[in-house]
Lab assay of single mutants.
Amino acid sequence: MEVRTIKVFTTVDNINLHTQVVDMSMTYGQQFGPTYLDGADVTKIKPHNSHEGKTFYVLPNDDTLRVEAFEYYHTTDPSFLGRYMSALNHTKKWKYPQVNGLTSIKWADNNCYLATALLTLQQIELKFNPPALQDAYYRARAGEAANFCALILAYCNKTVGELGDVRETMSYLFQHANLDSCKRVLNVVCKTCGQQQTTLKGVEAVMYMGTLSYEQFKKGVQIPCTCGKQATKYLVQQESPFVMMSAPPAQYELKHGTFTCASEYTGNYQCGHYKHITSKETLYCIDGALLTKSSEYKGPITDVFYKENSYTTTIK
């Protein structure tokens, strides 16, 4: 009895394709271990004539594949690729409408935090270190965002349907971005203890939790000093293409032309909904596939993004 075979390709990165001759009487799992086709788990399936010449994702289970996976995804987590594939199996079914010149995501599976993050990423200057993220990001900007969303979920250790947080998501993504040249110098002034300067680099240099107003941050924000008295913390120097200011959701007025974009969060910790506000020729609110415009805006804002380049204080 002759062994019926077909020729397929296996890959971990969709760049390096490895030619395989597979036995049609055995499952993919018996031949390769966990195997995925377009995100779908085909591990328990036997090869079919229609699979001839198709590319299958496999887990990096030998040295060659491990090197290829690390170079593309910059992670050695053995569960990463499987999590990416199972997320992709959902995100490829989502709709990605162009809204006001940006790629958004039609609401499904509690994905409003991903839509808000995706919209924000198209408006701030950011370059990702893992080629996987950078490639998928370019495709997302062009309207094909399924891979990018699935990668975000995998890097953030999230599953489809789980509630997510924009600030946490951005923080994970910033860790995989090139923020080497970003720098922030802060000064804390206390009447009792004097003053202390701190220099922050990388992710810490672009994120701040405690106030939404970048102007206020430049002037000074009140913080408790270690001595128990009130101290003032203010920005001395900022070198970065953008800054992200966050605070627990509270009524906040966004003035046209003073910011790049913002995240609105309605609801409580267990259950809520994100919308995205962007400042173009007027203010726009993007909620999944829905767009509304207004000249002014007041609502429960939790993150505001500002364009920056270089700032030095005039406070002496």
Rank of each mutant, 00 (worst) to 15 (best):
T278C: 09
A87V: 06
L179A: 00
S104Q: 11
A108Q: 14
D135G: 03
A117S: 07
A154M: 04
C112R: 01
T43A: 12
L88T: 06
G82L: 14
H256D: 11
G228Q: 05
Q175D: 06
L291R: 07
V203Q: 07
T43D: 11
P248W: 15
N110H: 03
Y84F: 11
A87W: 09
F128A: 03
P47M: 03
N178R: 09
N157Y: 14
D62Y: 06
E264D: 05
A145R: 02
L121M: 09
G33P: 09
F217V: 12
D38R: 09
D13H: 06
L212W: 01
Y155G: 01
G53L: 11
Y297W: 04
S240I: 01
I301W: 01
K127I: 09
D109C: 01
T232W: 09
P47E: 01
L254G: 01
G29E: 13
S294Y: 13
A40Q: 13
G39Q: 07
A262W: 01
C193N: 03
S181W: 14
V67R: 14
Y208F: 14
P131K: 07
Q31W: 13
N129Q: 15
I45V: 12
Y214E: 00
V22H: 06
Y96A: 02
C285E: 05
Q270I: 15
I277W: 15
M24F: 11
K54A: 14
G267C: 15
Y155N: 03
K233G: 10
K201M: 10
I315K: 15
L118Q: 02
L186W: 05
E296R: 10
E264M: 07
G39M: 08
E144C: 06
Q20A: 11
V304I: 12
Y113D: 07
N268A: 08
S294L: 15
N61G: 06
K201R: 15
Q270Y: 15
G53P: 06
M245R: 03
T91R: 06
G220C: 02
V221Q: 03
T211P: 06
N100E: 14
L200C: 12
D287C: 01
I315N: 15
T64V: 11
I301K: 00
A154D: 01
S240H: 12
Q134A: 09
F305R: 02
D63K: 07
E281T: 06
R139K: 12
F259S: 01
G228N: 01
V3F: 13
C261Q: 02
T103N: 01
W94K: 05
D23H: 14
E308M: 06
E264G: 01
A289N: 12
R167Y: 01
F128T: 02
F70A: 06
K191Q: 10
D62E: 12
K233N: 05
V185G: 05
P300K: 09
T103P: 02
V21R: 12
P78V: 02
T55N: 08
C190F: 03
I301M: 03
V21M: 13
A69W: 05
L17Q: 13
P78N: 03
A40P: 05
K293P: 09
I223M: 08
D23F: 10
E2S: 10
L114V: 10
P248A: 10
K46N: 11
C182K: 03
T199H: 09
T232H: 09
Y84H: 07
I105S: 09
M207V: 08
S171E: 12
S50N: 11
V99P: 06
K218I: 03
L114P: 03
Q98E: 13
K93M: 00
R4Q: 12
M170K: 01
K44L: 13
Y137K: 04
T75C: 09
Y72L: 09
V99R: 09
P47I: 05
A87M: 01
Y252C: 06
L81P: 06
E2T: 09
P224D: 11
V189W: 07
S295L: 14
K298C: 15
Y234E: 07
D62I: 09
I223S: 12
Q216D: 04
K201V: 11
L119R: 02
P249S: 05
V160E: 03
Y265A: 06
S181E: 12
A117R: 05
C190L: 00
K93W: 10
T312E: 10
G101P: 04
N268V: 00
F56R: 03
A132Y: 08
F148D: 00
P249H: 09
T116R: 01
A247P: 04
S171T: 15
S240N: 01
T116W: 00
E162P: 00
T312K: 10
F70T: 09
C149M: 13
L200H: 05
F80R: 04
I45H: 12
P34L: 11
A146L: 02
S104H: 09
T302K: 01
D303H: 07
G288K: 02
T292W: 06
A69H: 15
Y36V: 08
E215T: 10
E281D: 13
K54P: 05
E162Q: 07
G53M: 12
G228Y: 03
F242N: 02
K92E: 07
G220H: 02
L179D: 08
P131E: 10
E68Y: 06
W107I: 04
K46S: 12
Y113L: 11
A140H: 06
V21I: 15
T198L: 13
